[in-house]
């Protein structure tokens, strides 16, 4: 409580944007009732598609501008094309996209290797920064994961010995 100004009006700028009418309706929307006149507008010129761009089935075509980063490719691309057969309201859209993202990670590693580059996962994860600023936490995390991994290996080795 000690940091609460006793008199809020002493806070620099207090009340300069107060708006008693903002309570609550659609203040963020400049109401033009344009919808009632129909949903059409002079569309900006269309960006020519130079790469494959997927679009939501909830709209009829591409937007006038769009990003061209990382077009779909490989197995992850096939999953993305499949996902875009479903609406944004469907898990059939989002779950395949999440799966495609994970497949894409594996494809990324393979592509790196194909290009003669072994990904430096520790550097990519920023462990240098963690070593500098939170060495104890990093060591603890490695130890905990090492112990859990060793325990799992020991458990499954034991199971496979029992089954023989």
């Amino acid at each position: 409580m000690e940091h609460t100004p006793k008199d809020p009006s002493q806070v620099l700028g207090w009340g300069v944007d107060a708006d008693p009418k903002n309570d609550p309706t659609y203040p963020m929307k400049h109401r033009t009732d344009g919808e009632h006149a129909g949903y059409s507008w002079g569309r900006p010129p269309r960006q020519p598609p130079t790469v494959e761009v997927l679009h939501s089935i909830e709209r009829s075509d591409l937007t006038s501008a769009f990003g061209t980063s990382t077009p779909p490719s490989g197995a992850s691309g096939a999953l993305r094309r499949f996902a875009f057969q479903y609406s944004e309201s469907s898990y059939g859209h989002w779950l395949p996209l999440m799966l495609a993202d994970r497949v894409g990670v594996a494809e990324g590693v393979l592509n790196d290797l194909k290009n003669g580059r072994v990904p430096n996962v520790l550097a990519e994860r920023g462990w240098k920064a963690e070593w500098k600023h939170d060495r104890t936490g990093l060591v603890r995390r490695i130890l905990v994961r090492g112990i859990l991994f060793s325990a799992a290996v020991a458990y499954f080795r034991g199971k496979s010995t029992d089954s023989r």
Partner: peptide
């Protein structure tokens, strides 16, 4: 905006 994202309408 309705003219900047083809992948999602939301």
């Amino acid at each position: 905006c309705h003219e900047s994202n083809p992948q999602a309408t939301a």
